[in-house]
Each structure stands twice: as C-alpha cells, then as structure tokens.
C-alpha cells in the first residue's frame, strides 16, 4: 500500500522552473530516498510535499487523500512530519521541551486550563514529558534532556529534530539531509536510527547527499537533476544507471564516485 503518492509535482519561482514535474510513491513502512546533485530541487520538492511551498502544478496524495496546497500544520495532523536541512530547533527551550512541543497535537489546545495551571495542564505535561523522554532515549539524547537546546552539538541537534518530528506520531517522516554536516560516526548513528524508526512502521522519505547512507538503508531511490526525475529504482540499479552517473559526473564527478564506491 502506498502512503504518499506524488504526481507531476512542480513549482516555478518568478518564471523560472525550479522543479518541473516529478512523480513517485512511498510505500507503507518503506524508506525512499531522493538524491541528486546540489541544486537538483530536492529540498524544494520537500517544501512542496510538506506544505511550505504551494506547488505550481501536480498533485500530492497522502493515504489516498489529495493534500496539495494543504497547510503544513494540518499535514502534521494527517500524519506527516519533517526535519530541516538547516536546523530549525527551538533554541530558547530545553532539549526536553523541544520534543514535548512536538506533542502539540496530542496535547490539544486548552488555553484556559494552561493559564490557570489546572490539573489537566499538569497531567498533559507529565504525559508529554514521559513520551518525550522515551523518544530522547530512542535518539540517544536522554542525558542532555534538561540542557538548553542551543548548547547541543550539530549532530545532536539533528537527532533532536528527528525526536521532535517523531513526537507528532507521524505515519510518514520526511528527513531533509539528516547526515549533512555529520562526521562518519554520527552518520552511522543516524543510519541506524533511521532503520530503527522504519522498523516501527513509520514510512520515511529521505533527501540525502550522502550516497553511502542512501544505498545502505533505502529500499527505493529517486534521482533528481535540474528539477526533473532522471531515474528511480532499487539502490544498486540506480547507482549503475548511465543517466545518474552522467548527472553526477557532469557536476561533481569526484565526489560522487567517492561516495558511490566508498
């Protein structure tokens, strides 16, 4: 069963086509990766799927429902959450509060109860704290739970964003370059983490630059170049697709070879 279906999705910025018309699907419980050289339109594609940009054309279906142009906070309620390539952590909160914020949908909005500090407010806080701690353990950040988020290392912040996204209890998780800027050890940790998350039945759509990570964990790979899909399929098949090699060779030959073989 497919959870996400993207059909001919594209967007123009001021007359320039950033993404032409991309189609692919994500099956339930599957890890699908979108790869491509810099400027291929991967993040733009993500921003359309997650409701931040309104697409100029095409359709997005989540569990068979058309969600094209639906606001991102409503998408979260429908079971889609995401992380960001350029970290968007709540810097003025503790690590724990960041993840607790992700429980917003479960907590609901009861402003008066919260203002007056009624028992309902405390109860929801306790539940959220318990669940947030569980997620922090999952991503390996339970020790720093009470630290200010701004004190964490880059790699830890990446995992914090994943924990926050998971707190929304998504069916589909969008990860935008989760390993970018991480060292080899951190990359391996994130690699394991993503497989673990997929193991719990969450479908994952991944934008990644690190070919090594992609090849190892994805079941399906979509390759983009200059705003178009140029190839898709199983990782090993895609890696040998001449169009893919050409796209990478054309722009960053050395880097791609290194990634693909290493």
């Amino acid at each position: 069963m497919t959870i996400l279906e993207v059909e001919g999705l594209g967007i123009d910025f001021g007359g320039l086509t950033a993404v032409g018309g991309v189609s692919f699907g994500v099956g339930s419980g599957e890890i699908v990766s979108v790869i491509g050289p810099n400027g291929a339109g991967k993040t733009t594609l993500f921003n359309m799927i997650s409701g931040i940009y309104r697409p100029s054309r095409g359709r997005i279906m989540l569990e068979g429902r058309d969600i094209t142009g639906v606001a991102s906070h409503k998408l979260a309620a429908m079971g889609m959450s995401r992380t960001f390539q350029n970290l968007m952590v709540f810097q003025q909160m503790t690590v724990l509060q960041n993840v607790m914020a992700g429980r917003h949908l479960t907590e609901g909005v009861h402003v008066l109860t919260d203002l007056l500090g009624l028992p309902g407010s405390w109860r929801r806080n306790r539940e959220s704290e318990r669940e947030a701690m569980r997620l922090l353990e999952l991503v390996g950040l339970e020790r720093g739970a009470w630290r200010e988020a701004s004190e964490l290392s880059y790699g830890a912040l990446k995992r914090l964003e994943i924990a926050r996204a998971l707190a929304t209890q998504p069916k589909l998780l969008l990860l935008d370059e989760p390993a970018a800027g991480c060292n080899a050890v951190e990359t391996q940790e994130i690699d394991g983490l993503i497989s673990d998350i997929a193991g719990t039945g969450v479908s994952i759509l991944l934008v990644e630059h690190d070919m090594k990570l992609v090849m190892k964990i994805s079941g399906h790979v979509v390759v983009m170049d200059q705003g178009e899909k140029i190839s898709e399929g199983r990782p090993e098949a895609v890696a040998h697709d001449p169009r893919v090699i050409e796209a990478y060779l054309g722009t960053e030959a050395e880097g791609a070879k290194e990634h693909a073989s290493g």
Partner: peptide, 19 residues
C-alpha cells in the same frame, strides 16, 4: 504548559512550529 510551548515555538521558527 502545552499552550505555552506552542507559543514559544513560534519565537524561534514558525515553519518548524507548523510542521
């Protein structure tokens, strides 16, 4: 509180809050 965290999340990133 839950509502307070939602408010404070806007402070740092409206986009992240919406997701």
């Amino acid at each position: 509180s839950p509502a307070g965290r939602a408010l404070r999340s806007l402070h740092d990133s409206e986009v992240a809050a919406s997701t």
